[in-house]
Structures are given as C-alpha cells and as structure tokens.
Design a protein around this nucleic acid. Sequence first.
DNA 1: CTGAAAGCGCTTACAG
DNA 2: CTGAAAGCGCTTACAG
Lengths: 336, 336
Amino acid sequence: MVTIYDLAKATGFSAPTISKALNGNGRLNKQTREKILKAAAEAGYKPNMAAKSLSTKQSKLIGVILEDVSMQRGFEHPLFGGLLNKFRQEIEMAGYDLLFLSKHFNGGMSYIDHCIYRDVDGIIVVNPIDDDPELENLAKSGIPCVSTNEFIKGVCTVVTENYESGIIAAHKFVEAGHRKIGYLSAPFREKSPAAKERFEGFVKGLKDCGIEFNQKNYEICESWTENSGSEGMKKLLSHCDDISALFVTCDTLAFGAISYLNEIGKKVPDDISMIGFDDDNLGMHSNLFLSTFRQNRDKIAELTAEMLLNQISGIPVPKIVRVAADFIERSSIKKV
Amino acid sequence: MVTIYDLAKATGFSAPTISKALNGNGRLNKQTREKILKAAAEAGYKPNMAAKSLSTKQSKLIGVILEDVSMQRGFEHPLFGGLLNKFRQEIEMAGYDLLFLSKHFNGGMSYIDHCIYRDVDGIIVVNPIDDDPELENLAKSGIPCVSTNEFIKGVCTVVTENYESGIIAAHKFVEAGHRKIGYLSAPFREKSPAAKERFEGFVKGLKDCGIEFNQKNYEICESWTENSGSEGMKKLLSHCDDISALFVTCDTLAFGAISYLNEIGKKVPDDISMIGFDDDNLGMHSNLFLSTFRQNRDKIAELTAEMLLNQISGIPVPKIVRVAADFIERSSIKKV
DNA sequence: CTGAAAGCGCTTACAG
DNA sequence: CTGAAAGCGCTTACAG
C-alpha cells in the first residue's frame, strides 16, 4: 500500500501538497500538480477511505432503508429492486457507495446508531417498516435524507402521481363503455400515500365522467399479498353490484383477484375488465395481459439521487416531487 | 459525538483502557470494565468505524460482485436477490456490512481498486461478468473471497448440485412414461457450471434408465433470456424428433419456449411435458404449473457466509461445497 | 491490571 | 505556491 508520504518522499513535496494535488483543491503550481499526479499513477497510489473519512467526516456512504415488510420480497421486490439499481448507478458516479441500514446489525443497532457507526453522509428511505418511529428521529438527526413514495415528517420525497393515475384509470374504463365499476384497494397507510391517492383519483376520474362511485363496489384487502387479493375479491363480490370493471391498487393484489375469479369460473376481461398498478414482473407471464401503470423507476431514482446529493452539498431541495406513472395498455379491458 | 477520550475523562482511566473495556479484549479489572461500560452507555457512546478501520485495517465491509449481465435484472434477479437477502442477514450478525463493488465507481475504478479504497475484508462473487479477467486478479490479491455457482481459479465456491438435478429430471420424465425427450440448453460458460452440469446429469439420468440421449433433440439457446428461449425452441423443433418431453436449463428460457409453443398451437403439458430450473418468480402466475428445481438460496447463502467469515478468521475452508436443489413438482409433466 | 507513546493515512487551518 | 504542526478516533505494542 502506497501512501501520500511515499509520494511525498518520491517527489520531494510535503504531504499536504500531495493531498492538494490529489484532490484538486487549493492553489497549486501546475507543474507541481502534474509531477505529483504522475508519481501517484506510477506508484499505483490508491487513497484510503478510512483515513479520508476520519479526517473529513465524510464517509461517501449512502445509507439505504429497505425493509420489505409488505411483500416480503426484499431485493426481489418489483419496484424497489429496479429503483435501487438506478439509484446506485447515479450515486456511484458521484463517488458514493450504498450501505444497507439494518436494525439487526451487530446484535440490534438502531438505524441512527448504524448511521453514526458508519458515518453515512445521507440516507434514502426506499421502503420502511410501517410507521416506524425511528424514521422521524432519523429526520431530526440532521443527516440528509430523502424518501421514495413515503411521507416522513421533515424528509423530502419523490412520489408517483397516484392521484392522476387513478383519474386515468377511471377514464379508461369509462371510455371502454363501463359504468358499474369497482375498486379493490390495498390497506391505507398514513405515510405511504399510494393506496389512498389512487383511490381518490379514481373516484374523481369517474366523477369527471358523470359517474358517482358506488361504495358498495369497494373493498379493502388486508395486506399487499396475492392471497389477500384473492380474499379481498371474494369479499368484494359478496356485496358489490354486478360490476364489469375493477381497478386494483397493485398488480400483486390483482393477480390474487384474478386467481379467485378464475376459481369461480369468471374470466378477465370477458367477465370483468381490470387495471392494476406496478407492472409487476409477476405479470410478465400472464402473457402480458393485465393493463397496469408502471412507476417510472429510473426517473424516481434519478430525482432521488439528485435531491440527496444536493442536500449533502447544502443546496435547498423541494419537499415533494411528483413523477408520472405510465399507463400500459394490454388486453384486460374489454369494450362494452 | 462522544469519543473514548470523553469516556477517559469521565472515568479517570486512559484511552487504551477504555478501548480494552469496550472491545472486551486483554486483561482488565472486572470493576474497571463495568465502570467504563456503564459510563459509555450513559454517555451514549458510539464507536467510529473509520477510526477503528484506520487503526485495525479491518473495515468490516464485505464487497459484493453482482453484475447481472445475462438476465439484466440486477437486484430483481430470481436467484441473486433472495440469496443476497439471506447472506446479508448472516454477515450482519457478525458485524459486517455489504458493499457493492462496481467498475463504474468514481469514474471507472477496478474491483480491486474499489476494494482497496474501502479496505473490504472479504468478497462474495454472486454473479460476475462472463470470464471477467479481473476476477482472477481479485483471487490473487489475497482478499478472502467466495463465489456462488461460479468456478474462479483460487476462489472457494458454493454450487448447486446441477448434475444430480439433471439425473432427477431425467428420471421424472421416464417415470411418467416419456421416451422421446429433448433438452433445451442455456449457453455453456467455462466458469459457470450450471448449463453443462445439468445437461450431463440429464444424459446420465436417461442412460440409467436405458435411454440413449438423441443429439437431434438438443439445442442451445443464445443467452438466458426469454426471447432466446422462444428462438431456441423454434430451432429445436426444426430438427428434433417428435419429442413428448423437454428439460430446459432455466425457467426464463422455459417460459420463452412455452410462449413459442403456444404460438404454434401446442400446449404444455398436453403436447409436450416440461421441467425447468430456478423456480423463477416469473412462473408464479402461470398458475404455478411449471415443474422446476429450486436452488436452496438460504442454504447457499448460509454456507457462503460461513466460508467467507472462516476465511477472514484464517480458518481453512473447502474448495467446493455442493447444495442440493429441491425438485418442485407441479403440473407440467403429463403421464403417457 | 493500567497508561504513555506512537501510529493508522489523510486533511485542515495557519504561516511563510 | 508550499510546508510544519496538529488533529480526526481508535488501537497496538511496550513499560511499569
């Protein structure tokens, strides 16, 4: 391992001068800089991050909170995996590495302790545990923090245009001639606006078309899993109108609903049209038939990275940024 | 931020003594230790990893190489995501964090440079770029290293029992009465034994049953994607016997093959029985009908973590450990 | 059992 | 433009 002292000896300059040359900051004679850079390259000098970190108080580490409690798929989650891939690319270009924050670390550290321990420069909350009280503490800790699709007090966030998507879904159904329309919802959560906003947008969209949403045609599933989609569908059918179309908060639930419908001999879209949300990979093999919304993972990741990096640099950032979802039309909507 | 010097001042002991108490190493008076620990807890002392790392030369960081070139799904890859979830849990209990190694870091660092920069204590190669020359350099670097399902010179590895699985697949088909059997393969790669071993096991399995595998019934796809599965299937059908059963190296290819078969009006398993490999999430919504093998992600992750941690501690580890895959019988095999 | 000294590799003011 | 001094927070021999 070659250090700046080796370079100092080799070039005849002092350690601080080597440091300046390497980091490109401060005034320095052009020739001096070049000589040092050349020596560094020849010697195969690699900076040591621990030393840098200790003296600068910057770890160049971004903490990630990704607790996939709702779907239990961890890295395999349909949205989070893709989002994180892109986010990682973005921050890597700026010299940052990802560090997954954990509560189970080293026999039960809190997120904050983990952050302090590793001196993370910033945090991205991709998917936390519902209403985890630790999150607001994180926000208060002063560590730059940004979330995706999650409202946390004091934390700026990038959120999909759920409301607008709901409106679009309603219009799609109405345009296809549907009038008796149902809604199968994921559970509402205070901090995660998806379920609520999609529903409200949907009701608004129907209203735009002169249709009052009928509460009889509404049901909330117990969680975000496929199974609860099946059960929710069963419950919904037990009290709803003879609906010809159904909007479902997410594809996972939609697939569960479809399974149940198939069980009782009903087909999508012949008997009931359907729109989901997420463009879940799981759907790729239903012969890509479920119309759905695809959250713009790349855009969300880019904006999140930008906002976090700006915060770290002390540049003010907006509290909320919205990103449109793309409607993906496939064959689950029947014209009537 | 409270440091060991603060604790030294508060308790009247010296910094080295504080350090000993905190780390539980070296001889120390029991009361002294207790007094210091109590003071540390009261003051809310958190160790600083950068400082620790600088003086001990241990970062408590495990580098991860995960370049999903073949399927391009990154974190969303069917096997790697799950494997990494579990691996992360294991090493976190030992106080290690994950650090994703990248070639694009900071404008193009090599893996090794990234490792040196962050001083990683060990490396797990989950899925590298095919025949990346950098890998052998990593092995030579002396940093403890372990791979999964990948043969790299000088690196110990945990591999699924591909050969044995191939045998099982053959037996399943034969037991169901099939005689004219085909094989649709992923491309062979020198370092990744999956495709080759599965095929060889399959041929052996047929032989066990007195059936000589007919090379006419064999085709290799161009990559691991669904599309190439469709194309491979098309090619296979252009020259094979009237096969009634087909083993496919992986589910992704199998799904592509099924798509093509459906296109030309053939059904699985009515017209052709099929077994895949991976228990890919993608399959969950084909109503879970494709029989397949599921690699034991948890076991692989546990063993990988154990081997890496042992290596870091200087404990010798075996070169290769094999883990059985579970055959998952669903409804894609028709009795004839 | 405990502490004084030195060091890990780098950077930050501050002089000159 | 360049360097001497000190410091980041912790640990490692080595004395005593």
